[in-house]
Write a protein that binds this DNA or RNA. Structure first.
Lengths: 189, 189
DNA sequence: GTAAAAAAGTGCAATGAGTCAACTTAGTGA
DNA sequence: TCACTAAGTTGACTCATTGCACTTTTTTAC
């Protein structure tokens, strides 16, 4: 298992070619104006091959979301002494994914997602999919049942943040305000 | 505009026939095992006609969600003196939609939705779609800008509640706990 | 009361996503 | 080398959804 092996490498190459082709065409013509077949052709594979690498059209756009879930769980488990779960999550959101958001290379990518309803929906789902895992980590940390509703709610609300702050001029401030709500409860602003 | 007119009535009848046919077939065979054509045929109309009444397959299942949005807004605006927005929303959630949940006739319907991923997704979206409107009402009430992030977050979190409490043994208690979180902030349970 | 205008519905063909089954090819490992 | 396995191919297929041209009501205006 040291070397990935030629097979693995070729597989990865094909996958990458597909993702690249897709992103290129989507940016050129717009998501809806590109068909699966266009993408497969651009990457010079058959459409069936494409579907062996990606479960659907939207997945071609969200290709690098492997260890988000593990990261969130680690944040809960390995936080500093005396730091609350909510504060640890706040820190992670601010330091972690918020930085990626204003990479200049990300701009057109972000525009693509924001201008395509199907991708917005799918993107939100990619986050909230981790609700169960994050919730379980929080519950374990608090020493309560894994299906504790407060923990599930907190997890869900935290994972809603990307959707809530998308396209905001001051995402940092927005994130802070949301965490204030989660920490202290609603106060008439 | 007094009488609905024959036209309106016929239109409504067709629509109802479609919704009924769809629900019947879905319950009989399961969502994925029923095609649009099956439904159209059962209701004795063409598939084209079906799509003039419903924007898609999932919409056939969620047919009675007209004034949810208006209701939420009314709850915010016309609450009792001295009652906070959050408490008004809590009351509405507990009194309003929670009661419908345990109608015995609803059981198989609920099962259908819960066992079909496409319908779960669509159902969640039906709620969160009202985020903007509810958020605006809350912001107006609080006298802040309509895109105030705290208001948007509160609206979103409240509308997340159906998704969070779906299939719970004690929905009432769950709703209360979530509102406690929104009122007082997160407390290690 | 009759003639448009508007709406409801139909039929049909097309597009595009996603699936399936049977096959070929190339990498792996003994 | 040889058999095994996973990647890829082909082509046909299902199904949702849309567009277009057409017919049949119902309503509205004259």
């Amino acid at each position: 298992m040291e070397t990935p092996g030629r097979r693995e490498r070729k597989k990865a190459a094909t996958r990458q070619a597909l993702a690249d082709a897709a992103l290129k065409l989507f940016l050129e013509r717009g998501y809806d104006q590109v068909s699966i077949r266009d993408i497969a052709e651009e990457a010079d594979v058959s459409t069936t091959t494409l579907f062996k690498h990606f479960p659907g059209k939207e997945a071609l756009v969200f290709d690098q979301d492997q260890d988000r879930e593990a990261l969130f769980i680690a944040v809960v488990r390995q936080r500093r002494e005396g730091q609350s779960v909510v504060d640890a999550l706040r820190e992670h959101v601010l330091d972690g994914w918020l930085k990626l958001a204003d990479h200049p290379q990300m701009a057109e990518y972000t525009d693509l997602v924001n201008s395509t309803p199907a991708l917005q929906t799918y993107g939100e789902r990619m986050w909230t999919r981790h609700t169960a895992a994050l919730s379980a980590a929080i519950a374990e940390d608090a020493g309560v049942a894994p299906d504790n509703i407060s923990c599930q709610a907190l997890a869900r609300f935290v994972l809603d943040i990307p959707a809530l702050t998308r396209g905001r001029p001051e995402p940092r401030k927005a994130v802070e305000e949301i965490f204030d709500l989660l920490t202290h409860g609603w106060r008439m602003p």
